[in-house]
Structure formats: C-alpha cells, structure tokens
Amino acid sequence: MSLFAIMISSILVNNYVFARFLGICPFLGVSNKMETATGMGIAVTFVTTLASVITYIIQHAILNNLGLQYLQTIVFILVIASLVQFVELALKKISPGLYSAMGVYLPLITTNCMVLGVAILNIQEGFNLIQTTTNAVGASLGFFLALVLIAALREKMDIADIPESLAGFPITLIAAGLMSIAFAGFAGLV
C-alpha cells in the first residue's frame, strides 16, 4: 500500500474513533471544550507516533528474534506506560510551555486504548518502519479530527434543549453515531 493510501485510510476511511472504536474514553471524556480537545489531540499525536516507532523496533529486534511474540501485550503496555512518564519528565525540563499545554492529559494517555491498538495493528498488518510511522501519524490525526469535530458539536449542544435523560453522554454518543454515518461515506476512497 502506498504511503498516501495508508494516510487517507487511517484519517478518513478507517477513522480510529468512528470506524474502529479505539480511544473512545478520552473521546467522550475531554471533548466538552474545544481547548481541552486540542490539548489532548496534540498529546495523543505525539505519544502514539513515538510509541508506534519504539514498539516496532522492539517487536522486530527483540521479540521476533527471541521467539517471545506471546509477551507482546505485556511488553507493549509497559513500554507505553514508561514512555508516557518519560515524555512527561522530558517536556517539563525542555519545554515548560508545551508541558503546561498538554501536561494534564499525558497521564491519561496510558489507558488510551488507541496507543496500544495502533501499535498492535501496525505489527498485525506487517507494515515496515516508514509505513508504521505514517499509519501512526494518520491514526492520531484522525483521532484529533474526531475530537475537535465532536467538541465543536458539544459546545453547541450545551445551549440546546435536550431531554433530561439523554443529556450529557447519551446525546454525545448519538451525535457520534450520526458523524460515523458521514464518515462511512468515505468508504471506497482507497
């Protein structure tokens, strides 16, 4: 698959939120304001890309060579957890501005299933290192896009008159469903 096709596929056609259901927790949790959505989007893009590259190297250099493929889940989640900690420490030292912009979202990313999901899918699809990076960037941009779209909608829905029992998460889920129908229109693009 060409790099362009991978990118379009992971942003639009197989959007990780709307078509693959990865990263729904932060998608619902931090999408109530445009500002927080942007912060989370940047943090996720950064960590997902870094994690995909590192897990790719670990899978091919260590796990495959030693025949330890069954340890994949344990190793990957540990790598991601420590990577998040490391990124947090490094950012605090190097760029306090960026740290204050995405600092609060970083610890939440360990349990964002998109990071682990993208890392495992990259291995399953048999991507090489460049394809892995492209797919990770595309996946995070797709997540970013979904997050910003739904945050914009929720800001409008705050002032709308919604039935009491649907207010909050239920109506957000229904809106996400309608958006997912729109995204299904991209099918066949790649």
Binding site: F18, F21, P170, L173, G177, S180
Partner: peptide, 16 residues
C-alpha cells in the same frame, strides 16, 4: 459502527 454509537446512546438514555 454508527449503529453501535446510536444504540448505546439510546440504551443509556432509557436506563437513565
């Protein structure tokens, strides 16, 4: 996928 979002939204609404 769209159906999953909508049905879960309605289910939580009914539960509420």
């Amino acid at each position: 996928p769209a159906g999953a979002f909508i049905v879960l939204g309605l289910l939580i609404g009914l539960f509420n």
